[in-house]
Structure formats: structure tokens, C-alpha cells
Write a protein that binds this DNA or RNA. Sequence first.
DNA 1: TCTTGACCCTGACGCAGCGTCAACCCCGCA
DNA 2: TGCGGGGTTGACGCTGCGTCAGGGTCAAGA
Lengths: 259, 259
Amino acid sequence: MLTIGQLAAYTGVTVRTVRHYHQIGLLPEPERDAAGYRKYGATAVVSLIKIRTLAAAGVPLTQIRPMLDADPATFAEAVRRIDEQVRQEIARLEAGRRQLAQLTAGDGLVLPPEVTAYLDRLRELSVSERMVRAERDGWILVSARWPDRVREWMPGKFAHLDDPRVIRLYELLSELFDSDATTDDPRAHEAADIMAELAEQAYAAGEVDYGAGEDALAFDLLDALAVESDPRAEWMRELMRQRGWAGWNRMERVPRPPT
Amino acid sequence: MLTIGQLAAYTGVTVRTVRHYHQIGLLPEPERDAAGYRKYGATAVVSLIKIRTLAAAGVPLTQIRPMLDADPATFAEAVRRIDEQVRQEIARLEAGRRQLAQLTAGDGLVLPPEVTAYLDRLRELSVSERMVRAERDGWILVSARWPDRVREWMPGKFAHLDDPRVIRLYELLSELFDSDATTDDPRAHEAADIMAELAEQAYAAGEVDYGAGEDALAFDLLDALAVESDPRAEWMRELMRQRGWAGWNRMERVPRPPT
DNA sequence: TCTTGACCCTGACGCAGCGTCAACCCCGCA
DNA sequence: TGCGGGGTTGACGCTGCGTCAGGGTCAAGA
């Protein structure tokens, strides 16, 4: 007669494992001795070896019991089913591993390379790190919403950087948000003037084509993001409204408020 | 401002997932509105996207938080570590899958092919299925204890089957255990005579070399197994003792009891 | 004989990453 | 004002055990 520890040692498992198998009914509870200790016979050893053989092959514990007294056909079918599951699990892990290999620290974590190149270009142009990060977060939202189209937009964005007004705009905004500027700062007005001008130009060129409905949420998020990163972004929205444009990222004409 | 459902939909996760991330402190709890609803801003969307990017690549949730604000070197190191873990997990599953492919229903589940061949041979010799199963369980114990040596023993076992006395012995035992024979059955005595004869022969040939110590347990298990499969096995042990042999599987000379 | 150390017992929490109730609150619409 | 479809917190369930906590038991040495 074996104690639980001896049984466990003989079959190469832990005592806890044996008790667990009792708990889930995989291995029948044996007789107890006077002290309440479990006493195992040789058949328990044989059962446990069979169980471990299946478990070691990756068979879920819940499916072992039925397999032990199944006919060969049923058994083979179960093996096929389990193998398929394991196969899928492996595939999942390997997909994750490929993702993992792509992971870069910094901006590249969630952005396509075209966008990170754009962000790096902004840094070269001395745009403040704070502004760049705000841009980056904006692009994260954009990439999440339009993952397939974002790459084709980037050349246009790069081209914009050839326009001295755009450069000046980034410069102004960098200064504004890095300082403790207040509402009446003349730089805010200059920035708003440039933005209105650019908006007017884009509008005239028919480039303003924002989808409606679902996209509205994404644009709202972009605007909200700006405000969350710096509450003063709200001023800029107000200044734009005064110039007849609503929104920050999605330009729309609104009636100019009475001055 | 987004509700939890909108946030979840936008980032492609379930509401429960978002709450789980709050619970484990991976995503900060946002403000609540008057009704107690969580209200999310755009930064939450950005955070969640970053988190999902890492999680989808197989990074454990507990390790995501530190990685989000780690410098590139630390980040890369963490990626390497995790990749290594995933690699090992994949290796484990694939090992299991190979095991799975080897699994056969029936005797082959836990026994090397040489042994199953031996069992099949017994079946051909009209040994009763009950006896064969008892043999099989015995071999399972033996294979667990001496997994490397069992295969080299099998040729000897096969050779034994050429001895008519061995065949007769299997025949007698099959009959005995399949019937409701009692202690004084003459077949039991004939079987015991054959076994004593074979033991004597093996002993004379110096083939009796049972390790001591640890192996004792295995032999005790084998004897116990026989008794558990049919209590009448105990008689046979008694008959053998009368002929000067102790044990059932491990033959040892004992003083012959006074008759 | 007492003590020590190694076992044994039950019961319960913890782990990863959520799924899935349950029971109740809130909002918009008819 | 009632209804349906949201939302909220809280809690259990899944897998396969590891790991306490808080005991009782056994064999052996001082």
C-alpha cells in the first residue's frame, strides 16, 4: 500500500496534482487508513500513469476520463479534435510572435513607418516635442480608424511642409503650447489666420471631403485629444469659429458670429 | 466624451475587457458622469490602442504597464524576454503534439510496441483477455520503472513462449481466473508446480538478479496488482511459498514451511 | 518519554484574461 | 408611464495546479 507521496513520487507528479485529480473525479478516491491517510494500490498507479500519458500530450483533464474507456475510433477522433485545438493555439502564439518581432519602442509601436517618418521630420523642423506627441496621438487615432488609407495620405502631408505658412504655423503652435500664453496672445491670432487661410485654400481646391456618420466620432476624438493635451486648444477652436470655421481637424464653414 | 461601450467598439475589444484593465490598474479609471457612468476622452482611446497592440502580440498584461513608458533599450530587452517565453511555450505545445500523434488507443497508449506485440501474441495463444489485461497493467508498471530496459527484455519473454510449460502455465492461469475455481483446484497446483520448476531453472541459470532497495517497491506493486485484479492470486502466492518461493514476480527462495 | 522533522489532512486563495450571469440604475421613446 | 436597450457594480467560472494556513500522524533519535 502506498501513501499519496509515494504514489506521486513513483509517477513523477506532485501530491497536489494527485489530490486535484481526486477533486475533479479523474482518479477515484481510495480507501483511507485509521489516521485518514489515503492508501493506494497498484491499480491506482496504473491509472495515474495512463492519465499522465494523456495529460502530458496536451489532452485537457476534462477529456481524459472519457478517452480512457473509449473504443479506438472514438479515441482517434478525440485525438484529432485535440490536435486541431493545439494546432490553433500554436498558430495564435506564432502570430503573436511575429507581431512581437515588429514591435519597436517609441512612435513605431502603433504607427506605420510613413507616419513616424513624418513625425521625425517635424522634430527636424524644431517642432516642440509636446506638439509632436500630440500629433502622434492624433495619428494613432487616425491609423486606428483608417488603417488602410493613412499611408496614402502621408505624401500630401509631407508636401504641405514645403509651404512656409505651414512651417510658421507649427512654429507658432509650438511656442504657444510650450509657453504660458494667454488668450489674447497675438501669436494665437496669427496661427488662426494661417489656419483659416489654409482651410479656405483646401476648401476651394475641393480637398475637403470628410465622410459623415461614423467618421464624425473620429473627428470629435481628434478635437477632444487636442483639448485634452492642452486646454488652450479650446481657444484656437474659438478663434477659428470667429473666422467662420468649425472644428479643428475637420474644417467646416459656420456662420461667422457677430463681432 | 465616450461611454465604455463606445470606447470598446472603437478599439475592437469588449466592455468587460476595458473594465478588467481598470481592475488591474492597466488603464486608469476615468471620471464618472452624474449617473456614475464612466466617461472616456480621446487619450483613453490612445492608451487602449497602445495596450491592445502589445497584448495582441502576446505581452502579458502585467508587463504592459512598465513597457509603455520604458526607454527603447529596456523595451527591446522586455520584448526579447517575452519572445523567449512564447518560444518555450510553443515548444512545449509542439512536444505535446508529437506525443499526441504517437497516441494509440488500446494497449499502445502507454506501452512500447515490443510489449504490445507480446500481448498480442498472448491473445493469439488464446490467453484469456482478463489475463492479458493483467499482464498489460503489469508491464505498464515495469515500463514506468525501467523505461529504457524493458525493450531489451522482450526477446527473452518471446523466447519463453517456445517452452510448452509456459504455454501450459498461461492456459492454466487463464482457466483458473476465468472460472470460479476454489483453493483446492488441482489446476492451481499444476500451475504452481510449473512456476516452481521455471523458477528453479532460472535460478540455476543465474538469471535471477533483482536489484534491491528501490526496486523492491516496484516488485511489491506487481504482486499487489495481481492480487487486486483477482484476489485468488493470493492463493498462488501461498502455493508458491509452500514450494519454497516467495513473491510472484520476483522469485526468492524462502524456507519451505512445514507441511 | 519527549522532541523533531517529515508526512498527511482539509480548505481556500491565487494565477491570466476575460465570459457570463445577476440585480439594479438610467435614458429615450411611445 | 411603461418598455426596451443601454449602463453600473459584484461575483463566480474556466485550467491546472502552486502555495499558504492550521492543523493531525508517524517513525526515529536523545
